[in-house]
Design a protein around this nucleic acid. Sequence first.
RNA 1: UCCUCGAUAGCUCAACGGUAGAGCAUCCGGCUGUUAACCGGAGGGUUGUAGGUUCGAAUCCUACUCGAGGAGCCA
Length: 464
Amino acid sequence: MEVVSVAQLINDTHKYVGQQVQVNGWIRLNRGQKAFGFITLNDGSHFTSLQIVYEKDQLENFEEVAGLRTGAALNVYGVVVETPNAKQPLEIKATQVKLAADCPEDYPIQPKRHSKEFLREVAHLRSRTNLFSAVFRIRSIAAFAVHQFFQEQGFIYVHTPIITASDAEGAGEMFRVTTLDAEKPPLTPDGNVDFSNDFFGRKTNLTVSGQLEAEAFALAFGKVYTFGPTFRAENSNTARHAAEFWMIEPEIAFAGLREDMELAEAMVKYVISYVMEKAPAEMDFLNEFVDKELLTRLQKIASQNFARITYTEAIEILQKSKQTFDFPVSWGNDLQTEHERYLTEKAIGKPVFVTDYPQEIKAFYMRQNDDGKTVAAMDLLVPGVGELIGGSQREEREDYLRGRMEAMNISLDELGWYLELRKYGGVPHAGFGVGFERLIMYLAGVSNIRDVIPFPRTVNSCAF
RNA sequence: UCCUCGAUAGCUCAACGGUAGAGCAUCCGGCUGUUAACCGGAGGGUUGUAGGUUCGAAUCCUACUCGAGGAGCCA
């Protein structure tokens, strides 16, 4: 007898109607009655669950089946029947139901509403709920969409290192990677830890960004992207920060800030459209139970052009607004979260690129503009999530870059290779970083980053 | 790291100085098409931890732990 998945049954119903099949899955809900009952069975192949109908005069073990609980695993044998007048399109009339693995009555996941906080404490089980089933399917589909978007356009996927010798990229606190004895590390004569005795013969950390290495590849392959894990040891306690997250970092040569923004906008729209097309059941569920505006908002985003304003214009908009802010608005200070939210949610009402920030508040590698005060940087702000993307045109002029590195105390020894990229055919190039989880939050309407990561790592929390 | 709020049954919450309750879940019974089914019944608690105030504390006070929201930092 053919073992079929729920996804096959839903996608190819006509092929299976009237057929005897086997389905394996887990009970979401069992509603037994006197002489018959219904099991909602989920096998993970599709967001939707399958209804199993079982009857007393069809099953030898009717009493046993009627007593099975949520979470138990089953092998179900039966006939596929279309049910056009019912809530579900098809069901299985069981001829045999075998218990594959029982699930005792203290199973934490019950067919009722649970809080997201509780489910985080049982992260090993929460993927069996509708919400997390939807979120993690979308995460998988979106990851594939990212690859497809770049691959279709001829980008090379580069695996930049996870362990880095650089500790001065300015992107946040880093996690030390070491094999030294934490209790009794070897010391230099003047009493400091002697990292020359460490595994790599030097101090090493987990990467906070693959950008610098991606630049090296962009200057060989033209268009590249990274997509991998990133680590920040920042003591951030917010719904938008995790210690371990995935970042997408494209880098394009012979290109400036304008091309960079065009790429960012196209990528965001592509991923949104792809997920809406490939995960309609999941998106409908999220639209109904998480955020009623979700689909409307995403459709709008996918069809409208993103706004573009300069930092200087943003300051003017904020200064002219009647809104009162907790933090003062003045040229030269970075935009606060409240300012960013006002811009994207109230003043403009859609995603907006803010460009050309003052040099002093941005990273050393961003290209200085002709005004001598600003750099060719861009942040993409989106309603609800805030900063989704940060990018820039990179400083390709060796003398300018060296000057910025010296001014900002970036080690020329450690990053000599980075400077050398400018010396040997260093054309203008640009790139950006997207927090993959923030993209998923935006797509799924989920407001906490811990709920879009299978097993999240945050300050003081590394369970599972 | 800072500010604010919270922690009571497996889960979601009520009780706000005077005998700790409800809904859901679980268990038992009923029910011929259910859809987070429905109807009846039962079990289930050192009120986050440690101290203090009081005749009496879930309730008031202190510290700690954990969680949430906001801020900073960022993606």
